[in-house]
């Protein structure tokens, strides 16, 4: 049920202006084993955590990756964000779900690349990620 992509668009899209940002991520050694879907999920998480949802002015043509590549875990994340953003009723409108996540990913990749990765002046990307993740962890108030 959770992994069912029935009724959802065949591809997940990205903003045209994000192509260069995703290219930047591709060059980053830390993400060397990533597929497009993985970059997108990371961007989505960043957008959501930083509460930056940006409307996409123009989508890049051809779709970023195929919807069928999403795992049940990915769907669980996508739907949780969409439900929290709107309400559970959003699940009746798959296109709306994708709109929410694509806009969050648009905001997320912008922060991730323009504000974070490009501004690392001291230490490695790994060190930055470690600090970022630990801060996030402290924010959610674990160990609960």
């Amino acid at each position: 049920m959770m992994g069912n992509s029935l009724g959802y668009p065949k591809t997940v899209d990205r903003a045209k202006e994000d192509i260069k940002r995703y290219d930047f991520l591709e060059k980053e050694n830390l993400f060397r084993n990533f597929q497009n879907k993985d970059y997108f999920m990371l961007a989505l998480a960043f957008g959501y955590a930083n509460n930056l949802r940006l409307a996409i002015k123009k989508k890049a043509s051809g779709g970023f990756f195929r919807t069928e590549t999403l795992t049940p875990n990915d769907w669980m994340i996508i739907k949780s964000i969409a439900i929290t953003e709107e309400s559970e009723e959003i699940l009746k409108e798959p296109e709306e779900v994708f709109k929410v996540i694509e806009e969050y990913a648009h905001g997320g990749v912008k922060i991730l690349v323009d504000e974070q990765l490009k501004n690392i002046t001291f230490g490695s990307t790994e060190k930055w990620l470690e600090k970022y993740v630990i801060d996030l962890y402290d924010d959610i108030g674990e160990d609960r």
Binding site: L30, A49, Y132, L136, Y137, I140
Partner: peptide, 21 residues
Amino acid sequence: KNELLLGHVISFSVYPAWENV
């Protein structure tokens, strides 16, 4: 370590949404 960090960065980000659901 990197796998652990990358594996958790998404979980920690989405955690409030999960709590909400």
